[in-house]
Design a protein around this nucleic acid. Sequence first.
DNA 1: AAACTTATTGCGAATAACTCTGATTAAAAT
DNA 2: ATTTTAATCAGAGTTATTCGCAATAAGTTT
Lengths: 150, 150
Amino acid sequence: MYSSNALKAVLNEKGWRLTPQRETILTAFQRLQKGKHLSAEDLYELLEQQETPISLSTIYRNLKLMSHMGILRELEFAEDHKHYELNQPSPNHHHHLICVKCNQAIEFKSDPIQKVGKSKAKQAGFHLLDCQLTIHALCPRCKKPAKSAS
Amino acid sequence: MYSSNALKAVLNEKGWRLTPQRETILTAFQRLQKGKHLSAEDLYELLEQQETPISLSTIYRNLKLMSHMGILRELEFAEDHKHYELNQPSPNHHHHLICVKCNQAIEFKSDPIQKVGKSKAKQAGFHLLDCQLTIHALCPRCKKPAKSAS
DNA sequence: AAACTTATTGCGAATAACTCTGATTAAAAT
DNA sequence: ATTTTAATCAGAGTTATTCGCAATAAGTTT
């Protein structure tokens, strides 16, 4: 959980600035219920309802920035756009099992996998941001019907 | 390695058809060098050069279809488009370590991870298509510079 | 082998996620 | 306070991907 000051510190370290918009975005994710995630558009609408609107371009820019900082993680569920959630450490860190047809997502945890991720990154001299096992599959419902396009 | 007949079999099973275009696409991926992968556009251009052109929409349709069948896997390297490669079983199955800044990708293998994938899918009653550990990180080069946007 | 059904193709238009531009504002440093 | 320059906003622009529809052809039935 980042405080406003901690966020400022990591931003300033790279020559970036703490803006009210960035605080707002981080707070929105921190308040989010476990297992929930937001697309750029979702976040845009949420902030509008909250009466703390932020322009779409700013949202896109900061979602990318915060992912590249390791604060958020980018999820690839649906076919055509990304989702985001807080990137949390071990007890809350998790992976996803996704039905490629209906996009239903199930979370699961696995510390061994996280360890593999950490060690592979270290081995290659990379600075780890996030690691996630993505399992693409067909859920019980969607695997049944023999026919039906796509 | 799918033969043309094996491909026909799995397609027909679902009421789908074996078309020359589908054979061409599968063959293109089978001929691809280890570690290589193609975007829809890449494939389009490759097939054009090969004098076996296929329309872009057909390419998109079939990349999706073949991914949903478990023949191809969808990779999310670059920011703005997908890449595809053959979905191969155990000795060739692998995962990716990716630099989020320069998109450099390093492959690595891990049977334990595959096992977790298989067991989680089974546990939830899903039909497994593909599982991949994606490690987002900064490569040695990209992690250095303190300043520089996004 | 001819007829039939309907999945598939190709083309171009349409969509939608995302990025870019340029003027303005406001963090942080001096 | 002043200065520097990163960040915001709004809207235009870009581009990967999908859609619609007429024409074609795979697989099936007779």
